[in-house]
């Protein structure tokens, strides 16, 4: 992919085709009525916004998930990938993924085994080279953690 201009090569690390595809065609960008878990995440610094709505199949397993929001390609693609990745998973598995993803975008070492859990999220690895954009990638995940923690029964 991409350009012959050398200063754009580094940008390919952050703006992978997968990311731009999720940005332009976000998955599960729908309102879910009567969600069991709900949170609106907002980044006051740049105005990025992600709202997550989740219904549970069992007390511990996600049935349906939708998001709404606006913001940069990184925050919105991260949200879109999140919704695809966590469907059907248990809350414990989700929290594990969230931890691994945090380490990945902060540039910390991640084992191959852990990397396998991330699926398309791995495409956001390059964000670690753009420190001010790390919070964009993490916004949907912080929002998810907030939605889960707000539900004390879980």
């Amino acid at each position: 992919m991409s350009s012959s201009n050398p200063s754009f090569n580094e940008l390919d690390d952050i703006y992978q085709d997968i990311i731009l595809d999720h940005y332009r065609r976000p998955r599960n960008k729908v309102n879910i009525p009567d969600p069991d878990l709900f949170s609106r995440g907002f980044n006051p610094f740049c105005g990025d916004e992600v709202t997550l709505m989740i219904t549970l199949a069992t007390e511990n397993q996600i049935k349906a998930i939708g998001f709404t929001g606006q913001g940069c390609s990184i925050s919105q693609a991260s949200a879109s990938i999140l919704t695809e990745l966590i469907k059907g998973k248990s809350l414990k598995e989700i929290m594990e993924i969230s931890d691994v993803f945090r380490n990945l975008v902060k540039g910390l070492a991640v084992s191959d085994e852990d990397l396998d859990k991330l699926g398309e999220l791995e495409a956001l690895k390059g964000v670690s080279k753009f420190p001010v954009r790390i919070k964009c990638a993490l916004l949907p995940w912080s929002t998810l953690e907030d939605a889960i923690s707000k539900n004390k029964d879980l």
């Binding site: 580094e10 940008l11 940069c72 390609s73 990184i74 954009r133």
Partner: peptide, 19 residues
Amino acid sequence: HPHDIGTVLDRQGIAIRAG
């Protein structure tokens, strides 16, 4: 998105504000 414009311009040495 303006932030993406800002990041790409920064790599060209151009400082603008996005937000």
